[in-house]
Design a protein around this nucleic acid. Structure first.
Ligand SMILES: [Mn+2]
Ligand SMILES: [Mn+2]
Ligand SMILES: [Mn+2]
Ligand SMILES: [Mn+2]
Lengths: 219, 219
DNA sequence: TAAAATATTTAGACAAGCCTAAAAATATAA
DNA sequence: TTATATTTTTAGGCTTGTCTAAATATTTTA
């Protein structure tokens, strides 16, 4: 099945939204993710349903079919591998790779992805800590431990970023927080759920908004 | 100026045709290169002329403007750098890289091409011996010595392939002729302009059709 | 140089993907 | 349980890039 870039982008958006929200994905959610109007989404959903890539009942939202899921995961795999390439080989920063990967993920080839993966020596995670699906589409998801749920006095290691938008990544750079950073929670403020955290280089106050977006592994 | 992939492909086609033919490029030639109908070409030519990328007078064919030329060379640069990447880093063969580079050349970024070039350690030629334009668009063209014009008893080194289509490249593989191969012309057949050539591994008869498509440097 | 052949352009149509405005369905609130 | 608000779909239209068929210009041939 040969899909257009646009169709691929819809599938990926539905995949990501379904993963973050479990249930059926609404027209409006997709329209926000893709930055188009809801009416355009309805049009596309019908096309995808005709191709058996999504389950669709009018007014009830969509979910991916087996095939749709498979294709979406392939795109995610390509996206994340290209991100690794851009960071490791071309020396981009982690806040620059996403936009380029959005383009590169649509390159069509039967062999490219696997060759790229081998060249990168089979990375397991992308620059934002997201897991890279294997050739067969298997993917090892994060356990959902967020920094916000770490107890006072406990230490943890940063293993992923939930919101990997440009500004957030740049902000983390300023705090000198990166994948692999060890953080110790000094104290928590019940008032606003902010926490005082000791990084390798400083003690900083982190709002709940931020600590809810950092995946960690407790030590 | 943000161009569509299609517009970029037209500019590149015009560039290549103009380079191979010197004068104005005809509608039909473009339609054959792009594999579309002449009427579609006329439409696109008008659009490109409106954007000042080509000079166009009805029925007189087109030529690139300064800006059009600049953009075309940038695309050629990207195409050839990606071909080097695919061959050197991902271990593709020289007959497989072109199709993928056709896609990769359209990736948009202010920084990607230069970073890729640096990563590849500033290659000067692509896998088919074609010169890679530099950042400023300067390009060192082949001197046009073809194998067909080498005299009997003289030796030469293969430095480029004029027709770098799949089947021709595969054929050269079979003959064990590659970039850098040393060839010695044993004899020439005036009858059909074929030649007997000694390669590193064998003596082979080469038709004029073939010897006209191999760039060489005389020794 | 006139007729025939070929090349190019125009006219009208279509699919993909998007939009706005309006209608219909669903969800929320009184 | 109605009334109101929100979401989703439909209807109709636009742009890009393509096509076929027909008209027009240029080139070749006689
Ligand atoms: Mn990304
Ligand atoms: Mn990522
Ligand atoms: Mn090529
Ligand atoms: Mn090439």
């Amino acid at each position: 099945m040969k899909l257009s870039q646009t169709e691929e982008n819809y599938l990926k958006a539905i995949y990501n939204l379904a993963y973050a929200n479990a249930n059926n994905v609404s027209t409006t959610m997709i329209s926000e993710a893709i930055k188009t109007k809801a009416s355009s989404v309805t049009d596309m959903i019908k096309k995808l349903a005709d191709k058996d890539l999504v389950h669709y009942k009018k007014y009830q939202g969509v979910s991916l079919t087996k095939i749709g899921q498979k294709i979406a995961v392939e795109i995610v795999r390509k996206h994340r591998l290209w991100e690794v390439f851009l960071l490791n080989k071309l020396n981009y920063n982690w806040d620059e790779v996403h936009e380029l990967a959005e383009q590169l993920e649509h390159i069509k080839s039967d062999t490219l992805t696997d060759k790229l993966e081998a060249f990168l020596e089979f990375p397991t995670h992308d620059p934002h800590g997201d897991p890279i699906p294997d050739k067969e589409g298997n993917i090892e998801h994060h356990k959902d431990t967020m920094l916000s749920s770490v107890e006072t006095e406990k230490s943890c290691v940063v293993i992923g970023i939930k919101d990997s938008s440009d500004p957030f990544l740049k902000f983390l750079d300023k705090l000198q927080i990166q994948l692999g950073s060890t953080l110790k929670v000094i104290s928590k403020e019940p008032f606003d759920n902010s926490m005082l955290v000791k990084t390798e280089s400083a003690s900083i106050s982190i709002s709940n908004q931020i600590s809810k977006n950092i995946f960690v592994k407790k030590l």
